[in-house]
Design a protein around this nucleic acid. Structure first.
Lengths: 325, 325
DNA sequence: CCCCATTACGTAGCACGTAACAATG
DNA sequence: CATTGTTACGTGCTACGTAATGGGG
């Protein structure tokens, strides 16, 4: 039994039992993969795949059981390699962060600056995507951790650590009538066309919930994936914007006013998503601590053992907040 | 990184950093091991051993960290192989049981008979030893499971599942004056010389505790490791025996009387010891179920996740019983 | 001077790639 | 007939064993 054979097997399964695709993904020849799978089956004394003619149709029950264990083993092997890399050169390596627009654009820049100063030799990758893509990147091991407000707490594979809380704000041109209304109400907002996020982005679900709880139907005339697009259309006078309040930049957005709406829409929690069984190098923990000082290495390592529910309790969040907010 | 290199490394560490001994244990050449260790260090980019001149003095801190992870990985690899063997030929293989005299001599014979009938192709090994040896055999992977009344619950590595409870009995010649004393008391027993187990065997600690709780000092004239020896000396009239009541065989011991003493000495629990992270083939679970019907496969697999304390609670034993009984 | 690890060197095995082949839809 | 997996075959790498070398206690 060779580690390579197990890697081949894993890749074949990942490629929906397509040996050709697996070989391509592994940058090796197709017959080589086929052969090693065959040898592995021979050594283990059982068929891992149910074949119909020449093509692999499905995993045998035994194959499925073993594949699960083999995944664990390969993860462990990769962890050992990462640990060795970290131990041999603690300030070198790669850090890949999967994140959404809002975090990448407004939250991370200062953290990235500090990090690059502290660890100039670490190659930093920022992968932007939708919350779902971000979550998938981490679960599939393509990124070291994720940062997003949505979708991270949906799988027990990930540890979704609360990073910080934020609310929404209303974005209006300086001369807009809403500037005069105090206190701001959902009803007042509903009188105007609205420009905000598409569903599943940056707390959009919380906005919808707030309106529908009051029996209101907002007139959303434009849905965008990020605050920059929203600002552009607010400037064109298309409607009033609702964005994350961290996305308002007082220095640059001097032609717009931000009216805090945290009280209306409730607060959101941006979470840090880490694979439960993943080893992270020292600099990754340092990055996280720069981002959220309460998430020390010690704190994270203790959290790994907890269920998501226990975690939320430990951090003092009820079920309401740990939902789709 | 090859599995073989990791196996070599593990063996070198097991052999107290002696490469020559490790090579011998692995049935391979000494330079081969030396070379592979070197290649592994090169690939990982760090020294695993602190060398003084040519000999390995100790593990480096990094080496120690990695060695722990590597142990986990190799265990996982071996587990996969065992699982494959079980899946490919569920009624073939080897079952090694580590146990003490009492269990091997009085408890296991009928179970073994049934098992051999059901699984004629399984090679069954019974390894007898002291409770400490028995425990060590399982923790070191030399046996699949252990059966003993003592020493198994001392390490969290093992799952010590309660198998059955038993008490002691007093063994006396047919004409002995104690036959007439009802009810039996500790004081009455203390009037006679006693023949029983050496310390650490078959509930001996419970006997001592019972006497000392009453402020009594028994006159133990012979200490033996097993009931057969004890019976022999009781027959010679050396004293009265105190043995596990399962060790009294009414058919064969017709010249001796057994007086139940469970009430005097309390009950003991014989436990089944399994490595928490170990995979057992189907026939092993069947053996266990023949031995103790309440220990189904399902029950055991659920127990693996529990701490020893949770386990004792689940089985309804308090701290008093889970002690050295 | 003995013990032990490393280096040197030759060999045998095996993983891999190219090419040809088989089978399925 | 296109796609995919298996068999055939040659090659280059490498793990391993034997032998020689180097260092400590």
């Amino acid at each position: 039994m060779k580690l390579q054979q197990l890697r081949y097997l894993r890749e074949v399964i990942r490629c929906n039992l397509n040996i050709t695709a697996a070989a391509a993904a592994l940058h090796t020849s197709q017959p080589g993969v086929s052969r090693q799978i065959g040898l592995l089956e021979e050594e283990l004394g059982l068929r891992l795949f149910r074949r119909s003619g020449r093509s692999l149709k499905q995993l045998t029950p035994a194959g499925a059981i073993l594949a699960r264990q083999i995944d664990v083993l390969l993860n462990q092997a990769e962890q050992i390699q990462r640990m060795a890399a970290d131990l041999s050169a603690p300030d070198q390596g790669t850090l890949t962060i999967a994140t959404t627009h809002t975090q990448a654009r407004y939250l991370l820049p200062p953290v990235v600056s500090r990090f690059r100063e502290r660890y100039p030799k670490v190659r930093l990758h920022l992968n932007q995507g939708t919350p779902q893509q971000v979550s998938a990147m981490v679960t599939q091991g393509e990124a070291d951790f994720a940062l997003a407000t949505e979708a991270l707490e949906h799988t027990e594979m990930l540890l979704a650590l609360p990073c910080y809380r934020w609310g929404h704000c209303l974005l209006v041109p300086s001369e807009h009538p809403l500037n005069a209304i105090r206190p701001l109400t959902l009803e007042a907002i509903t009188d105007f066309p609205i420009v905000t996020y598409i569903f599943g982005f940056t707390g959009r679900s919380r906005l919808d919930a707030a309106f529908s709880d009051r029996g209101l139907t907002p007139n959303v005339v434009l849905k965008a994936a990020d605050a920059d697009v929203i600002k552009t259309y607010v400037r064109l006078g298309l409607g009033v914007g609702i964005i994350a309040n961290i996305a308002y930049e007082p220095d640059k957005d001097t032609d717009l006013s931000a009216l805090d709406a945290s009280a209306l829409f409730g607060c959101n929690i941006t979470r840090l998503g880490i694979r439960r069984d993943d080893f992270l190098p020292r600099y990754a923990y340092d990055f996280i601590e720069m981002l959220a000082p309460h998430l020390s290495r010690e704190c994270i390592e203790q959290s790994r053992e907890l269920s998501q529910q226990q975690l939320d309790e430990a951090f003092g969040f009820g079920a309401a907040l740990s939902g789709s907010g």
